[in-house]
């Protein structure tokens, strides 16, 4: 069991997919304009990553190496299509805001990367632990980025429609740049530098 725990914990900080591996940056920046969107993207990524790791760990014994990557891509694309259809049917608002970035989960290097580097070489339980750890690490990164962007870009903090607090001056004169695309680069760049400077991440 401690083995699985190790695979889970490593995804949080030491091999955090966004901060350390610099994978999945495209969704991490594109949808991090609000915490709601960040959590929605995390849910989509979680379903696909967990499904892919389980299936690939299960079939890894008899997939010849020459067809490995095409088969992984087909499996991941199928899972993404399923998630896309389910979100469209049951979470239409989220489906609309995630837009093109939901189908693009299929090329999130994090998912193919984990399938290829981990699930294809490890047993089921550890692959599940790896998927959970990577998802939580992804969520930590996305929530941190979107917290800063939503706070500075709108001046108020709300999650799933519940307003948590409102900043006095910023809510009237929000710094729209943080919601705009360049703001995503800025927040991620500064967060990375801060985490490295404080020694949370090794350089």
């Amino acid at each position: 069991m401690s083995d699985s725990r190790k695979e889970f914990v490593k995804g949080l900080i030491t091999t955090n997919p966004v901060f350390v591996l610099l994978l999945g940056l495209c969704p991490a920046l594109a949808v991090s304009t609000s915490i709601d969107n960040a959590l929605g993207m995390t849910l989509a990524t979680f379903i696909v990553l967990l499904g892919a790791n389980i299936i690939i760990a299960a079939i890894r014994g008899f997939v010849p190496s020459i067809t490995r990557i095409p088969i992984f891509i087909v499996i991941i694309a199928t899972l993404v299509t399923v998630v896309n259809l389910l979100f469209n049917a049951f979470l239409p608002d989220l489906h609309r805001t995630l837009g093109i970035y939901l189908p693009l989960v299929v090329v999130n290097c994090m998912i193919l990367g984990r399938a290829e580097a981990f699930a294809s070489k490890n047993p089921m339980i550890r692959s599940i632990a790896d998927a959970l750890g990577m998802t939580v690490g992804f969520m930590i990164a996305l929530v941190m980025i979107s917290f800063v962007r939503q706070l500075l870009g709108t001046g108020e903090m709300s999650v799933f429609g519940f307003s948590i607090f409102t900043l006095p001056v910023l809510s009237e004169h929000p710094l729209a740049m943080f919601i705009l695309p360049p703001g995503g680069f800025l927040v991620l760049g500064l967060l990375l530098a801060l985490l490295r400077w404080r020694g949370v991440l090794k350089i």
Binding site: P182, F185, L186, L188, G189, L192, A193
Partner: peptide, 19 residues
């Protein structure tokens, strides 16, 4: 600064380019 080298400084350059 050491903690800015590599990815952080590239991302901040991207910010300025984006603006």
């Amino acid at each position: 600064p050491k903690s800015m080298r590599g990815a952080p400084v590239a991302l901040i350059t991207a910010t300025l380019l984006g603006l």
